[in-house]
Design a protein around this nucleic acid. Structure first.
Lengths: 241, 241
DNA sequence: CTTTGTGAAACTCTTCACAGCG
DNA sequence: CGCTGTGAAGAGTTTCACAAAG
């Protein structure tokens, strides 16, 4: 469409008024992993950790870890490592987890209910404040200490509860409409579990969690590893045409 | 550890005996998305589609789509576009979806049960063949036409049912052990829903789906977009210490 | 004339390797 | 010394822009 020759349109708010921070997306995506690992170390009473050890525990390479952390500032001590608690705090702050964000879940099928019940699915920083479904039979039911509301009340409740993040767990046909309504109500961050591509205006962050896509990526690799052993011939002859 | 100066160790089986295929990881990760989009077009009776239209529907840019598809071969017709059904078949074949892979789910909590019940969470190409839990109270229960087995029988049943993919939906403490046992039983592809880093030997594919990580990434962006409006000052003063 | 397929350029991310600090 | 923080090199990915095909 018209988006052919737009000049790149920087994702993620690169620079800004004051100091230009601009943490790379790839780094942001790993910070939660470091945070979880550090919280584990802290619970085990470990006060400091080297980049090498933290990297191993988080499953990444140590140079990458150091470069990632360097984007937050110089929080390490040469010859020693990183102070675990201090780093927990700094990463939490960077991720915006020093305050709680209100979350709404839309779609109370199996998955939506599992998400709502999964109380511990968020250590801290989030609070599920509203649940929605379109089925009048479900409206009024209580799940995880909340009453399921009809999706017609979405805008109203998003405003009242100051919802910052919407989690879409509806069937795929309903996902785009729910998404539009969330955006209309002012939500700018959406976690989408529905197997559907959401069209959103610029400035809205969408992350998707898609079981069948993950499985299909795995299937590709399964097929590959099978090829190593035996299936080679099948492929070479055109396999099943 | 010892993984410091290993020479890169190529992920994903780059070249092989015959022709070197080597589809980039980034492309593999998008193929399922194209596949789903194409299936939708096919169901609506659309016989051919241009890269521009398919890209828009899949939410990517058309040059990227063309380059991705070019890794599979030259399946388009210049001046016309791509034959929808033919492309569905080619992508399915490339992803290894022309046959069914047996899947086991370990951990029958809320999430595990939702996954097992989510019959349609896989269009085709997969078949959930076994469910496991460690809780004797759950063993024997029927979920989604299957009987929950005790996790002690994992190896036995993985062999008997020829399980290709393991889905870990246990609490995080149990994840590594389950993972080890799956690998020991010969499973080389794992989808991990537990919020834990899995240590695996080379050659094992792990994909993780992690709700709290996704939310935390969103929180970062929420905080960012807040900064645009008002919260700027809070940050500058050290916010909430 | 339309649309693919693709070199080449641009950009992002990862890894190396080491200066420099504690 | 040991370990961080980082320039520079390398790898991977995206985008551009256009020649060639239908």
């Amino acid at each position: 469409m018209s988006s052919s020759n737009r000049p790149a349109a920087r994702r993620g708010g690169r620079t800004r008024g004051g100091r230009a921070r601009g943490i790379p997306d790839a780094t942001v995506a790993r910070l939660p992993l470091y945070l979880r690992t550090l919280i584990g170390l802290n619970e085990r009473g470990i006060p400091t950790v080297s980049s090498e050890d933290l990297a191993t525990a988080a499953g990444v390479n140590s140079a990458k870890l150091r470069k990632d952390l360097s984007h937050l500032g110089s929080y390490g001590t040469r010859g020693v490592g990183y102070d675990v608690q201090y780093l927990v705090y700094q990463i939490s702050r960077e991720l915006g987890l020093t305050q709680d964000w209100a979350v709404a879940i839309i779609g109370m099928g199996n998955l939506g209910r599992a998400l709502a019940d999964y109380g511990g699915f968020v250590s801290r920083g989030f609070s599920v404040e509203a649940l929605f479904d379109i089925d009048p039979g479900k409206v009024g039911m209580r799940v995880a200490d909340l009453t399921i509301e009809h999706v017609d009340r979405l805008e109203e409740i998003v405003h009242a509860e100051n919802i910052a993040i919407g989690v879409i767990a509806t069937p795929p046909q309903a996902a785009q409409e729910v998404c539009d309504r969330l955006i209309n109500a002012g939500v700018r961050s959406i976690l989408n579990f529905a197997p559907a591509v959401l069209q959103t205006p610029q400035g809205v962050q969408v992350r998707k969690v898609d079981l069948s896509i993950e499985l299909q990526i795995l299937a590709f690799h399964v097929q590959r590893s099978m090829g190593m052993d035996a299936v080679d011939a099948m492929e070479e002859t055109g396999g099943g045409a």
